[in-house]
Simulated scan of single mutants.
Amino acid sequence: MLALIQRVTDAQVDINSNTIARILTGILAFICVEDKDNITHFEKMAHKLLKQRIFEDENGKMNKSLIDIKGGLLLVPQFTLVANTDRGLRPSFSNACPPQLAKQKFEFFCAFLQQQYDQIQQGQFGANMQVTLINDGPVTLWLKV
């Protein structure tokens, strides 16, 4: 399981000019589920997303988590994170989870997180989404479990 996370002051997902998800201060997480991912991977990633200390404390140090600041979490499915770009100029997606299974796993992961934290929004699997964000910092991290 892979995630590219960005600390944001605003982020939203639009489909056909309609906003389907929006958060203010929090984390925008682009999520890629892999074939091998199971409940253990989901638990570890959920822990990292909710507890990653990337928000500033009173002293300006990145010491607070999403839970500490009560921020929003916007989950956006993005299979292209698994792309292999080692050879040539066209990315290979041979390591990607098959679409139907990936959709089930992404939706399960979102539901799993919603049981632990109530400020979650999500993009739509398989849709042509336009993601708008204001990256705060900028702070951008790769998470892998």
Rank of each mutant, 00 (worst) to 15 (best):
Q116P: 00
P91W: 13
N63S: 09
L4G: 06
K51C: 03
N59H: 14
L66P: 10
I67D: 13
Q119L: 13
Q115G: 12
P99I: 01
N84T: 09
T9N: 13
Q78I: 00
T19I: 13
A83H: 08
K103P: 00
D57I: 04
L74D: 11
N95P: 00
Q119C: 08
Q116G: 04
A3P: 15
F55G: 01
P91C: 12
R90H: 14
G137C: 10
W142D: 13
G71W: 04
P98H: 08
S17T: 08
Q6K: 04
I67M: 15
V145F: 12
I15N: 10
Q121D: 05
F55L: 03
A102I: 06
N95F: 08
A102M: 09
P99R: 02
V145R: 02
L113Y: 03
W142H: 12
Q104E: 15
P99W: 04
L75N: 08
F125Y: 14
Y117H: 02
N63M: 00
Q114P: 12
M1L: 11
Y117C: 09
V139L: 13
L49N: 13
A102K: 04
T40I: 11
Q52H: 10
T25L: 13
C110A: 15
K61W: 00
S17V: 03
F112N: 06
N63A: 07
F106M: 10
A11W: 07
Q12A: 01
V76F: 02
I69W: 03
L73G: 06
F93W: 11
N84E: 15
G26Y: 01
Y117K: 08
K70Q: 15
T25V: 10
L50G: 05
D68W: 08
P98S: 06
Q124R: 15
G72V: 02
L4Y: 09
V33K: 01
K36P: 05
N95S: 15
V131N: 11
D35V: 01
E107G: 03
D57K: 06
K144M: 09
Q121F: 00
Q121E: 14
P99K: 05
Q121N: 05
Q6T: 05
G88C: 09
I5E: 07
Q119G: 02
M62F: 07
